[in-house]
Design a protein around this nucleic acid. Structure first.
Lengths: 199, 199
DNA sequence: GTCTATATTTGGATAGAC
DNA sequence: GTCTATCCAAATATAGAC
């Protein structure tokens, strides 16, 4: 495993912060270099161009070590409300994790600017979660734990509120506002939703 | 009422499209001038600078003639499921209205870049709707039409899914994808939600 | 109101010395 | 690997003729 130079790592770190606050267009190589403490030209010893830096940063958006684990959800053989709770709590962790928050912000900033990101958002943020959740709902329906209906619809209803809370938390954190009230919203959502679907 | 010059109006129209697709940074006065069919310098006869154009465009984000009407919701003395339906259908109209879609896209693009927009988003998109909805839920609870619980929580749950559908529709339209399936999601949401809360 | 011309700034990127 | 020097392109904006 080749060790990355300290400088290269610092460039990546600084770039991550800038990109996630100012977006691709709003971040200049100059700003990055200045913050890193080197000249612009030195940047190009580590990355061929600005876009390469961005792509390396953007890799982190969908490859978080904290993404909701499909296997974890499946293997645990979770049932009923615990299934919802586990999912929501993982989602909550992502929401409040500093690194993930930066990546989420970057995603939101660039979502309308990049078709590639939109497609990844759809598959990684939406489809994947919908699939995971609807499979869980399907099983619960078969074992008559919840009312019979469309598992995909339930998944959609469940995930949409989680997403909305996450967006709100991210916006509030941006301006250094408190998010205590919102933190509890995850649990409230699980409670409300479970009451809605249980037999 | 002073009539705005044709050119000034065209500048605004062209700018609206560009800003809502490329954002503030991604839109140059050059592009606008070229699309309008005049020289860059001529732009400055109508607006003092780029920011002024943007601010005029951005005014449209929260002043849509189609925003959900508080009075309409209140005066109609709507009750029960019709209350939810009316709100959701107005939200659906906004979602599929071309002008509103542009403004929503612009909002999403600039949301992370402007504290001012974030505050307006919070007050105009969130607080206002939460208030309107929770008042409705409160009344329904008093007349025992729905189960007793926290009206604000219900409002939050109801609006979050509408928002998520809207975001998805906007993303799909961006890449010219079909949104037929999502169009029905509004009605499905109302059905599901009503079943969850009715007595 | 629009044009040409131009000033000025910012940003991405390269060449070559150390 | 970093620096200085430099280049080039793009973008905002102004001056002044028509």
């Amino acid at each position: 495993m080749a060790k990355r130079s300290k400088t290269k790592e610092k460039i990546l770190k600084v770039s991550t912060t800038f990109f996630s606050e100012l977006g691709y267009k709003g971040t200049s190589v100059r700003k990055i270099a200045k913050e890193v403490g080197i000249r612009e030209s030195a940047i190009y010893n580590h990355y061929t161009n600005k876009e390469e830096i961005f792509l390396e940063v953007a890799k982190g958006i969908f490859s978080s070590p904290l993404t909701i684990s499909t296997t974890q959800m499946q293997e645990s053989a979770l049932k009923g409300k615990a299934f919802l709770s586990t999912f929501a709590m993982q989602y909550k962790m992502l929401t409040f994790d500093k690194t993930n928050e930066k990546m989420f912000r970057l995603l939101m900033i660039e979502l309308m600017q990049s078709k590639d990101l939109r497609e990844q958002f759809q598959s990684e943020f939406h489809d994947k979660n919908i699939k995971l959740l609807s499979e869980g709902f399907f099983i619960m329906m078969q074992s008559s734990m919840i009312k019979s209906s469309d598992p995909m619809l339930l998944a959609y209803e469940f995930i949409s509120t989680l997403f909305y809370i996450r967006l709100q938390v991210t916006l509030l954190h941006f301006d250094a506002h408190a998010t205590d009230a919102l933190a509890m919203q995850f649990e409230k959502h699980v409670d409300f939703f479970w009451e809605s679907i249980k037999v």
